[in-house]
Design a protein around this nucleic acid. Sequence first.
DNA 1: CACAATTGTCCCTCTGTCCG
DNA 2: CGGACAGAGGGACAATTGTG
Length: 237
Amino acid sequence: MPASLSDEQNHFPGLSRIGALLADPGRAAMLWALMDGSARPAGELTMVAGLSPSAASAHLARLTEGGLLAVEERGRHRYFRIASPDIAASIEALANVAQVSAPQRMTPRPARTVPVDMRYARTCYDHMAGELSVQLFERMLSHKLLNLHGNTLEATEDGAAQLARWGIDVAGQHSRRRRFACTCPDWSERRPHLGGALGAALLDAWSTHGWVERTERPRILRVTPAGHQQFNDFLKD
DNA sequence: CACAATTGTCCCTCTGTCCG
DNA sequence: CGGACAGAGGGACAATTGTG
């Protein structure tokens, strides 16, 4: 390892710190397991990482101290979750980079080998990702329901009307402290899907309508027949 | 008392540096 | 160039703590 950089030389000391936290396969496995937005106890994450309880505990402590995980104590259990939507989006983006940048023979899981249901519809922290999500997002852009400015998005008048039909109050979402809407790189599709408060609100709304359902398998969403009908109608308009 | 989780300690491996 | 050494990081075991 080279001699440590001075503060002046190292303009982004936080970047290397985060990189070091993500560099360990066990920590990466635990973070990835939490990417469905769930909170899981240390014991469960220990099994996910394939480590001893003590090693997993040390890793979880480092991730928590590093600000990547938040912990909630419930009795004798400690539940860990991704600390914020921004961190989840960053991990998703890194997964996308990993897919693109890995040498062919080293790519552990090319997008083409990702299970079909995982590729089609899944959660990305608190919003929807996958092929369907990307198609819906592109449909919103092409029909001027959303306007893209850099990485942020605004709903047009038509967009607000469509969102209202889905039960989403655009003004209400704007009043939240969280960013209204942003693009989120989709690692299986290599194209962006919709994130931010609006992305989370859409998943909530579609779940409430019974169009998508969480399954027993982590992250994977099932699109119901009613959902297929609704989404197909929206996409072919 | 049982169980979940953490802490302390020791050991192993890897990497960088030094020196002949 | 190669061996010796030191330091960092990670894993396992045992003990401890806290809770139901």
